[in-house]
C-alpha cells in the first residue's frame, strides 16, 4: 500500500489449527495473496511445535536456517518483511518448559516468563521487525479480578521485558483482547500507567476494544502517545453481559456464541453492521502522525483469501489508499 501510514497484514487467519498451514507451498500461496492485495509486510503470531513453522521462532529457524533464510522465503512472494510478532506467554506451549501454564499475574512466574521472551526478542530483532506484540495477561475467567497491586505485578513483568526489547532495538506493545483479565477502561489505563512509557507501548486492536466496551477512537485520542501498534478489524457485537467471564470464554463466548448464537465476532473492514468507526479511527491516526504499523487482521473469520481481498478493497475504495 502506498500511503503515509505503514500497512501490514496478519497471517494468523490462515493458521487456524495446529496441523494446517504447514507446507511451504501453502504458505507461499498465502503470501502471494497478501502481496496481490497490496501488502508487502506481514505480522506473525506465535504458536508451538513442529507444525508452527511460520510462527514459532525456533521452528522457523529450523525450517529456513537463519533469519535471512526466512526473509528470502518471504521475498519469493514479494513480501518484503515482518512488521511484528505476536506472543502470548499464557498460551500453553511445548517450548516454554513444556506446557508450564504460567501467568504474568503470578509473581512466582515472572522470572520464567521474562526468560521465555528471549527467542521472541531475538527473532523480532533478527528479521528486522519493529514490534513484539504480547498478550499482557491471561483470560479473566481464569483468574480473580485484578486490583491495583495485581495490575502492578503484571506490569512489572512487561517492564522487565521492555528493557530487553529496548536493548534489542525493538518495541514492546501490550495488546488488549476482549477476554483478558485487564478488561475495563480503568484496568487498561491502570496497566498503561504502571508500565514504563519509554519501553512499553500499547497495541490497539479496534475490534477487541469494541467488543470489550471501549471506544477505540476515543481511547486512541486519549492515549495516542502510548499507541505503538494497531490491529485494524471490525466487529458486529459488543460484550453486553460480562460474557468474557463465562467459564471457558475462548470457547463458550468466542466460538460458542455466548448464549446469543453469535457465530463469529470479528469481521472484515466494511462489514454490514460493523461497530468500529474505521474511517474515524484511521483519520485519528493521521491527525496524530501515527508512526507505527497498522496491521489489518481478520482472525476468527472465514475464507482468508476472501477476507484479505475485501480488506484490500476497503483500503483502496473507502479509505482511498493506493495499492
Amino acid at each position: 500500500m502506498k500511503d503515509t501510514l505503514r500497512w501490514a497484514y496478519a497471517l494468523n487467519q490462515w493458521n487456524v489449527r495446529l496441523d494446517v498451514f504447514v507446507r511451504h507451498e501453502d504458505q507461499q500461496r498465502a503470501l502471494k495473496t497478501v502481496s496481490a492485495c497490496g501488502f508487502d509486510t506481514i505480522e506473525l503470531a506465535s504458536g508451538t511445535g513442529r507444525w508452527d513453522n511460520i510462527s514459532r521462532p525456533e521452528v522457523i529457524l529450523l525450517n529456513h536456517g537463519s533469519h535471512q533464510g526466512f526473509l528470502d522465503f518471504l521475498r519469493r512472494a514479494q513480501v518484503r518483511g515482518v512488521s511484528s510478532v505476536f506472543w502470548d506467554p499464557q498460551a500453553p506451549t511445548e517450548e516454554e518448559e513444556g506446557y508450564a501454564f504460567r501467568s504474568t499475574a503470578n509473581p512466582a512466574d515472572a522470572d520464567a516468563i521474562v526468560e521465555w521472551s528471549k527467542p521472541f526478542v531475538d527473532f523480532v530483532a533478527g528479521v528486522g521487525a519493529d514490534q513484539l506484540v504480547v498478550r499482557p495477561v491471561g483470560s479473566a475467567w481464569m483468574t480473580p479480578p485484578l486490583d491495583a497491586d495485581g495490575i502492578k505485578v503484571v506490569a512489572d513483568v512487561w517492564n522487565r521485558i521492555g528493557e530487553r526489547t529496548a536493548a534489542a532495538g525493538i518495541g514492546l506493545a501490550l495488546h488488549y483482547d476482549c477476554l483478558g483479565a485487564v478488561h475495563t477502561h480503568a484496568e487498561l489505563t491502570g496497566l498503561l500507567e504502571a508500565t514504563d512509557p519509554a519501553t512499553v507501548g500499547f497495541a490497539l486492536d479496534t475490534a477487541e476494544l469494541t467488543v470489550g466496551g471501549i471506544d477505540p477512537v476515543a481511547f486512541y485520542r486519549e492515549h495516542a502517545d502510548r499507541v505503538t501498534h494497531v490491529h485494524l478489524k471490525d466487529t458486529r457485537y459488543a460484550d453486553t453481559g460480562e460474557e468474557y467471564r463465562m467459564p471457558g470464554a475462548e470457547s463458550t463466548m468466542l466460538k460458542g456464541g455466548a448464549g446469543r448464537r453469535i457465530e463469529r465476532w470479528f469481521y472484515e473492514l466494511g462489514t454490514e453492521g460493523g461497530l468500529v468507526d474505521v474511517p474515524g479511527f484511521v483519520a485519528a491516526l493521521r491527525e496524530h502522525g501515527y508512526p507505527g504499523w497498522v496491521v489489518v487482521e481478520s482472525d476468527h473469520g472465514g475464507n482468508p483469501a476472501e477476507l484479505a481481498m475485501l480488506n484490500s478493497w476497503y483500503l483502496q475504495r473507502v479509505l482511498g489508499v493506493a495499492k
Binding site: R29, A30, K32, T33, S35, A36, N303, A305, A308, M309
Partner: peptide
C-alpha cells in the same frame, strides 16, 4: 478466492 489472488500475483510479477 485464493486461486484468483495467486493468479493475479503471477500477472503482477
Amino acid at each position: 478466492a485464493e486461486a484468483t489472488a495467486v493468479a493475479k500475483w503471477y500477472i503482477d510479477n
